[in-house]
Amino acid sequence: MSCLGAIVFNLTTAALMVLMFKSGMLLIGDGDVRERPVPYAALALAAVAVGAVVLQLSWSGAMDTLDGDPHEPGWWRVVTSVFMQNGGVFGTVWNIATLAVIAALAQWFWGGPLMLALFAGGILLPQRIDALFGESAPSTDPRNFAGSSGATYFLAATLAAGLVLSSTDPKARLMAVGVPVAGLTMWLAQENGHGLVACYGFVLGAVVLPLARRSPRALLPTLAARSERS
């Protein structure tokens, strides 16, 4: 990839995250985030990511043992590779910061258990879905053997799906629909795996939200709050 191509790749990847972040902010509603409950599950994910970086810095064999290299044995790699980082200082800071912010937004909307389940989906599902369509090249996974960005973009896209199904504002819904459209465009034009996993996350979020709403138990925090007030 040329220098210009790398710049465009990074800019479009960042722009997609900004689009999903704005969708998440609209989804959880107005108000000071400091007034919201402490997102302990999101903090736990961020702490694991930080701990993994500390492990990399203190153990030279961490990446070889825990990354997602398909040519190496180890059933654990599909999970541990998410918390390894190989994007340098800037990439590591970006990955952990976006993970913490998106996980917090997702917890405030989905609740802790569903947020963690959707994040796990972002770890486990993309490669399985790729295999169904005959995609086996590692390039379909934005992690490139390591990194949390793929699972984070997957989780962020579930917020865009939530906004489409929850908002009555046409502009907000149009912006949220732009997430899978932009993601698919990025994949087709750049083979940018972040865009592809965003499409997967959007679809899963669109499937899970109606099921959570119909559940006899109030799985979503917003539904639980309404039940308490009624």
Rank of each mutant, 00 (worst) to 15 (best):
D30Y: 04
G24I: 12
S58K: 01
E135V: 06
A137H: 08
N10E: 15
R128T: 11
F83V: 01
L223S: 08
L26H: 08
W108S: 13
F145N: 06
L45D: 06
R143F: 03
L204C: 14
M17L: 15
K171V: 14
A189N: 07
A172H: 07
R77P: 12
P113D: 05
G195Q: 05
N86D: 15
N86I: 12
G61W: 06
A52W: 05
L196Y: 01
T65F: 14
V181K: 03
L188P: 00
N192C: 11
G183A: 10
L27Q: 02
A49C: 00
F83T: 02
P73R: 00
W110A: 06
F133L: 12
N95M: 07
G51L: 07
G193P: 04
E135R: 04
A100Y: 02
F90N: 07
P180N: 11
D141P: 01
T12A: 14
V101T: 10
A198C: 10
T98E: 07
L45Y: 03
I7N: 08
S166L: 11
V48M: 04
L184H: 05
I28M: 08
A97L: 15
L196E: 10
S58V: 13
G162L: 12
V207C: 14
K22P: 03
A189L: 15
T92K: 00
A100R: 05
A189D: 12
L66R: 05
R34F: 15
W108A: 14
M186I: 00
M186V: 06
K22E: 14
S58E: 02
A44W: 04
F133A: 13
E35K: 03
A224E: 13
P37Y: 05
Q107L: 01
L124W: 05
L26A: 15
P142T: 07
V50C: 06
A225V: 01
V164S: 12
M20N: 11
F9V: 08
A103I: 01
G87P: 03
R143I: 04
R143L: 10
T158V: 03
A198N: 03
R143M: 12
A6R: 11
W110M: 09
V48G: 00
M84N: 06
L124H: 06
D130G: 11
W187M: 09
G29D: 10
F133N: 12
A47W: 00
C3T: 09
I102V: 15
L163F: 06
A41P: 04
R128W: 07
A104D: 03
L220V: 08
R173M: 14
L219K: 00
L105R: 08
L27S: 08
A106G: 09
A44E: 07
A206H: 10
T168G: 15
L116Y: 04
L26S: 13
T168H: 13
G134A: 10
V38D: 11
G122Q: 09
P216M: 10
D64Q: 00
A189Q: 10
I28L: 15
L19V: 13
V177G: 12
A106Q: 08
V164N: 07
G183C: 11
E72D: 11
A42P: 02
W59E: 08
G61T: 03
A49G: 01
G134W: 07
H71W: 04
R34M: 15
G183K: 01
V101L: 15
R36V: 10
